[in-house]
Structure formats: C-alpha cells, structure tokens
Amino acid sequence: MAKRVVPEAARRRRRPTKQGQVLSHAHIVETALRMLREHGPAGLTARRLGHALGADASTVYRYFRGMDDLILAIADELFGRAMTSFTPSGDWRADLRELGTRIHNAYLAHPQAAVLTASRVTGRPNEVAGDETILGILRGAGFADADAVRIYHAFIDQSLAFAILDAATLALPKAAREADEEVWRDTYARLPAATHPNIAATAPLLVARMNDSAYPTALDLLLTSAAAQLAG
C-alpha cells in the first residue's frame, strides 16, 4: 500500500538538520540532483540521501512516497527549469525552437539525472504546464488539433530522446568519452576510398560534425516539415 504523504506544512521538521537546513521538498530534490551529478544513479539511495541531508533515511519518506516518487519530482524540476521565464513571442516556429533548445539544455545541465528521468511521464505541474504551452503554440499557429498533437508528440519525444542520447555521452567517464570522439579521426578518416568511397569522400565533414549533437539539425528538420504542412 502506498505511503501517505501529508502536506508540507505538516511534515516540516521542527528543527534544522545537522547541516543547519530545514528540510523541504525543494531542498531534497536539489540535494538529490547534486548526488546524481557526483555519484550517478547508483549512488542515489534513501540512506545516502538522508546522510547528505543530515537526517535519517526515513525522513525522505515523509516527503515522497518512495524513491521513484523522488525521481518523478526530479524530472518535473528539470522540465520546470526549461520553462522558467519563457514567454511566447507569437512566432510559433521561433517559440518551438527556443523551447526545444531550453528542454535539451535543461537536461544536459544534469546528465546523470537526464539519463534517469527523461523517459518518464510525471503528470506533474511543470510538465503539464509545458505541454499546455506547446499545444497552445501549435493550435494558435493554425494547426488542426490532430496535427497539433502529432507534431507535439514528435517534438517532445525528439527533445527528450536527444537529451538522453547526449546526456549519456556526457555521463561517460572522461577517458571513454574522449576515446569515442577519437574514433572518427583515427578510424573513419583513415578508411580508404577503394573500400569505403562514401566515408572517404565525406571524412573531413564527419570528423568536424559527428562529435557534436545532431539535435539542432533534427529540430530544424521537424519545424521545417511542420511549416511546409501548415503552408500547404
């Protein structure tokens, strides 16, 4: 049976923790983000989180139903950071490009958390507000509802999929990441035209591009396709 979560005012600690902090939902989420950044997903446990907060592990469960509930709260926090201070300009294509970039950047700022959370659907306030904004931009641009939902689906999944892919790269140990990056120069760029004519012909371009994220290009392709449909 799920644990009962009482309102924050009722569960606030009466005294500070050993670190002098009065616990709150936001403080626990921020501490969990720091732990993910420093130790990765395997390092985020209730016991370790309680230790980092200067409290007993059971204290975490006064704020969250379980660790998965905390993961969903982290996902919603990252989405909220992407949406902070965003104001639609009225240019739907520019607005979606900005939002896509914001979402991608918000997750990449916390790559370990992104790998853990970007595939989740939270149904929480920041996520819901973001979805409402994106659908409003599309419907306001003149897309029919079915098309607005289809484009929204592709837009948000593309943003989060690239966030996971690029975050996974950033989350690699430095030596592994650098070794992967060198493959384009040390292997692909040296393949002979006699056996690999297409790779050999494009090798300098591959070396220059393939270690960067393809998300900006993919986002522009999606928006160009949507714009062509709207014009048609």
Rank of each mutant, 00 (worst) to 15 (best):
D180L: 07
L219W: 00
E38Q: 14
A146W: 04
G90N: 06
L223Q: 07
A218L: 06
E30G: 11
H110F: 09
Q158V: 06
A42S: 13
R4A: 15
R65S: 13
Q158E: 14
G136S: 07
A168M: 12
I156R: 03
T122I: 10
L219H: 00
Q158Y: 07
A148R: 02
A231R: 12
Y61A: 12
R12H: 09
A129I: 03
P125M: 10
E127Q: 15
G100I: 02
S24E: 06
Y152R: 04
G130E: 07
A109S: 12
P204V: 10
P41V: 00
H110A: 12
I164N: 06
V207Y: 01
A32S: 11
L72R: 04
L172R: 11
L135I: 13
Q112I: 00
H25C: 05
L230R: 00
E178V: 01
A203F: 01
V29N: 05
T59P: 08
D95F: 05
A228G: 11
V115M: 07
I103T: 02
A148T: 02
L49T: 02
G54W: 05
R13N: 12
S119R: 15
A203R: 05
I71W: 05
Y107F: 15
I156M: 08
L222I: 01
A175I: 10
V22E: 12
E178W: 00
A176L: 13
E77A: 12
Q229I: 14
Y152L: 06
D145G: 14
R120G: 03
A227F: 07
A226M: 06
L222G: 00
